[in-house]
Design a protein around this nucleic acid. Structure first.
Length: 879
RNA sequence: GCCCGGGUGGCGGAAUGGCAGACGCUGAGGACUUAAAAUCCUCCGGGGAUUUUUCCUCAUGUGGGUUCGACUCCCACCCCGGGCACCA
């Protein structure tokens, strides 16, 4: 075994080396040792403590399926570094972990393997937990939650009832997205790539109509939008933007068009953001599903030919992918509408591009100023009437474009050429509004419509209410019963939780498994005591993850979801970390839930997370790691081969945290080598330094040149200077910018410097050697905590490193006494000068001019200007 | 189509408007070794001049601009990645 002392073969650590007790770096042994010490000392357990500043750092909770791979570990490593740095900085850190344990894969796996979703889930949780512990993440495991436990989901039910009581939860029949593979309803957000299931990317989503439970997210649309402002600076701009687009606020007006020549006909309401273009409306177009369509066709002269067309549209594909490119189709209803402004009669059409779900399901077509309308009207020969003209043609660029548009735009409202002019401009051909700027016209015309009672200003949102019903087993039962006498009855609080029965047949064949379980379905009405049926839908799992981080504050509370006082201490989350994939769904629902809880009086803040960080993916072969692609690098495998610290270091070093990272087996070897290098360095010196009384912060001033007359005084100064300079920069990288990769580069640089000064015993006093090596281990502590602890102990410390604060650097020691000043001639580097720090401009210029390599650049020329940056650069501009 | 990111050596990536390529990987050479592994040291963007030392020059997607000085700021364009997309 002796010859293996310095082995760098990672396999040795895992196998032979571990039992050998040789002095080499043995991560298996070291990591187990320190994980136990931390657990015994309860280092990561935290409680409410108003005397200390708090810091809540959280990584998005995982869905426990498949294997934990390095993609997961990157996320947790970033969070762990932040948690450990903040802890070293004196914060009371809350850093919890839990399991998003409900969901379809468990149910599918159970069907496939003939087991129970709970068995499958708990097995995975045990597995995940073991691997996370193996990586030494600083979680307070006492706070672990699992969303499939009744202790947790009971509060989903409780929140649901609160919302039901307040009208925020309601039931309605609605057209839904149905995935034939999941056999369940999907939220809009779960339909991806223009019509495919988010879990089964090859499965086209169908459209069905079912009774569903909804949560009224739209009641908070304005707040969800407005409060995004509070997140600016703390959340990535693009996430804010994606949410803003998703909410899709649109300000405009609702305008009624009366139907001509039909006695008692209901007027058609349209929504428009451009009421100023109404004089240019040449048709009113209804969505095929609009309820007025059949009434208009009733008795219409064209009824015969129109009805088959309507029927055909009704069964058109639901692929939203096609929607964008689909040919616009439509037909005339035989009826006319009256333009409330001009009094003119325009035809009423039905068009497949008009969406029933958006606005009023009807539009006015203004072909001259809307591209879609233009396309439609062209196709069917409807007239195009120009009512807005560009303001003065300012630039040559817009002239080119403008020419095209304005060319045919004769004032008469004849056919215009080519493109619709959709910008704001000046109204023309618009009765009394002609000559007004678009903004003015919009305001005046909206006011007029309001005054006359045929319209009003209106704001609409793209955001829809959140459909939470799932016809599946493995989720939170929705706590209501249906009674023949009393209708929909809420399960009283005292009867919560409505327990998800264990004994259920899972077949995977359509419909809800709960509905086929009579023991669950048949119950009594809480109101009248008569027979009743339970709701058999379960909740979308996004409900679970919408508030789980509050439960971490108070995970065992059986009287309330959490104690408000505890939440008030810990919230908002100071740093939330997760993938960009959750930029809309999870984060929007969480924000909604927060606002509901605030209105319930549970909390007082508006937003759950002050800062959000979206880390990049870990890829292999250019694509994200996933089990289905078969390109995962297993976390446990890494821990066995190199140890957790190497795995952690590599994911931090290989790329900045926000960027995607391409996994490289060769590069991780580099991280492994580096840790070995550090280990050997400290190991070599530890015996001599163990008893030395000195260490961090004890050295405050640089040793003077003459100190002890030692020839190594310069060496000591160099070492101390480098160490403190790097400590300063590493501190910045951790605190202000999360540049973990460059922090590691700096620590490597320091290690190289120390190696370069070996043997340190020659000329460097023990207390200085000790200070330098201690700072090195402390800088590594947040990233490779096990190794750092081990080295700290090797240097003679009885108390764990967790008791030590982040070191502060000494400006005095970091100061350069000699600097290299760059000499530029007319902006080009021509030389460098070594001068004492703080040398003045005159002196530098004098020396620069005397420099041999520089002379010839100056000869025969006149210096017309000079720029001087102290201790950095001098630039002589010559003519 | 609209809105965000991003283009730097063979590769991953560094650079408050001030020496482009830190640090690592790969590769080459050397030391140690009987040998290999490991370790330690040196070199490693292109072109040119100089027999060494060294010097010049081009170079951060392309083209302009601002500046004493631009990877960094401004304008236009090209390419790659992502999001949204008949939203009236």
């Amino acid at each position: 075994m002796a010859e293996q002392n310095t082995t760098g073969n990672p396999e040795q650590g895992a196998h032979g080396g571990a039992q050998g007790a040789g002095p080499g770096y043995d991560p298996q042994k070291i990591e187990a040792k320190w994980q136990k010490r931390w657990a015994d000392a309860r280092v990561f357990e935290s409680e409410v403590d108003p005397s200390k500043p708090k810091y809540y750092v959280l990584e998005m909770l995982p869905y426990p399926s498949g294997t934990l791979h390095m993609g997961h570990m990157r996320n947790y490593t970033i969070g762990d570094v932040v948690a450990r740095v903040k802890r070293m900085r004196g914060f009371n850190v809350l850093h919890p972990m839990g399991w998003d344990a409900f969901g379809l894969p468990a149910e599918n796996a159970a069907i496939q393997n003939n087991t129970h979703p709970r068995t499958w889930t708990n097995k995975n949780i045990a597995e995940f937990q073991r691997v996370l512990r193996r990586f030494g993440f600083s979680y307070d495991w006492r706070r672990e939650i699992s969303t499939c436990e009744p202790e947790y989901y009971r509060w989903n039910q409780w929140f649901f009832l609160c919302m039901l009581e307040r009208g925020l939860a309601y039931r309605k029949k609605s057209r839904v997205n149905w995935c034939p593979k999941c056999c369940t309803v999907l939220a809009n957000e779960q339909v991806i790539n223009g019509g495919y299931c988010w879990r089964h990317e090859d499965t086209l989503v169908e459209s069905r109509e079912i009774e569903q439970w909804f949560l009224k997210t739209t009641a908070y649309a304005d707040q969800l939008l407005d409060d995004l402002k509070q997140l600016e600076g703390g959340w990535p701009e693009r996430v804010i933007l994606m949410q803003r687009n998703w909410i899709g606020k649109s300000q405009g007006a609702r305008v009624k068009f009366a139907v001509a020549d039909v006695a008692g006909a209901e007027p058609i309401e349209v929504f428009t953001t451009r009421i100023d273009t109404i004089y240019g409306a040449t048709a009113v177009i209804l969505a095929p599903a609009h309820p007025l369509v059949s009434k208009l066709l009733d008795g219409s002269p064209v009824r015969g030919e129109a009805e088959p067309k309507l029927a055909k549209m009704g069964q058109a594909s639901v692929k939203t992918e096609d929607l964008a490119t689909m040919e616009k189709e439509g037909f005339f209803t035989g009826r006319y509408a009256v333009n409330p402004f001009s009094g003119g009669k325009i035809p009423i059409w039905v068009g497949n591009f008009v969406l029933m779900e958006y606005g009023t399901g009807a539009i006015m077509a203004v072909p001259a100023h809307d591209e879609r309308d233009l396309e439609f009207c062209r196709k069917y020969g409807l007239p195009v009437r120009v009512v807005v003209e560009p303001k003065e043609v300012e630039s040559s660029k817009s002239k080119v474009k403008g020419e095209k548009k304005v060319a045919g735009a004769a004032r008469s409202g004849q056919e215009v050429a080519d493109e619709a002019f959709t910008d704001y401009g000046i109204s023309v051909n618009s009765g009394p509004y002609s000559g007004m700027e678009s903004e003015t016209a919009i305001a005046k015309m909206t006011a007029f419509a309001e005054q006359k009672g045929f319209g009003r200003a209106e704001t609409i949102f793209r955001l829809k209410d959140w459909g939470i019903s799932r016809q599946r087993y493995w989720g939170t039962p929705i706590p209501v019963v249906y009674c023949a006498k009393d209708g929909i009855v809420a399960v009283p609080d005292s009867d919560l939780p409505v327990i998800l029965p264990n004994d259920v047949k899972l077949t995977g064949e359509g419909g809800s498994p709960l509905a086929a379980t009579p023991e669950f379905v048949n119950t009594t009405c809480p109101k009248c005591g008569g027979p009743a049926r339970r709701e058999t839908d379960t909740m979308d799992t996004f409900v679970d993850s919408s508030w789980y981080f509050y439960r971490y504050c108070d995970p065992h509370n059986d009287k309330a979801p959490y104690d408000s006082a505890k939440a008030a201490y810990w919230f908002p989350i100071d740093q939330y970390i997760g993938g960009i994939t959750h930029a809309i769904l999870h984060l929007l629902y969480s924000r909604f839930w927060c606002k509901v809880m605030r209105d319930l009086g549970l909390i007082t803040h508006n937003e759950p997370a002050a800062r959000l960080f979206t880390q990049g993916m870990v890829q292999k072969g250019g694509v994200a790691m996933s089990k289905s692609r078969g390109n995962v690098v297993g976390a446990e495998e890494m821990a066995q081969k190199y140890g957790a610290d190497t795995g952690r270091l590599y994911t931090l070093f290989a790329a900045p945290p926000e960027k995607d990272l391409e996994w490289s087996e060769e590069s991780i070897e580099g991280s492994w080598r580096f840790l070995n290098r550090v280990y050997r360095l400290v190991d070599r010196h530890s015996a001599a330094l163990r008893g030395v009384k000195a260490g961090v912060g004890k050295i405050e001033a640089p040793p003077s040149k003459t100190e002890g007359g030692a020839p190594g005084a310069a060496k000591e100064r160099t070492l101390l200077r480098k160490t403190h300079q790097i400590l300063r920069r590493v501190t910045q990288d951790f605190e202000t910018r999360w540049h973990f990769n460059s922090a590691i580069a700096l620590i490597m640089e320091l290690t190289n410097e120390i190696y370069g000064q070996e043997p340190l015993e020659e000329g460097v006093r023990p207390e200085i050697r000790k200070e330098v090596l201690e700072l090195l281990t402390l800088m590594l502590a947040p990233m490779t905590p096990h190794l750092a602890e081990e080295l700290w102990e090797m240097l003679g410390h009885k108390e764990g490193q967790w008791t030590v604060a982040w070191p502060s650097f000494s400006e005095e020691l970091a100061r350069d006494d000699e600097v290299e000043v760059v000499v530029q001639i007319s902006g080009r580097v021509r030389g460098k000068l070594k001068v004492p720090a703080g040398t003045g401009e005159e002196e530098i210029v004098k020396r620069a001019q005397a420099e041999p390599g520089i002379e010839h650049h100056l000869s025969g020329k006149r210096i017309v200007k000079r720029i001087f940056v102290p201790d950095k650069l001098v630039n002589l501009v010559v003519a």
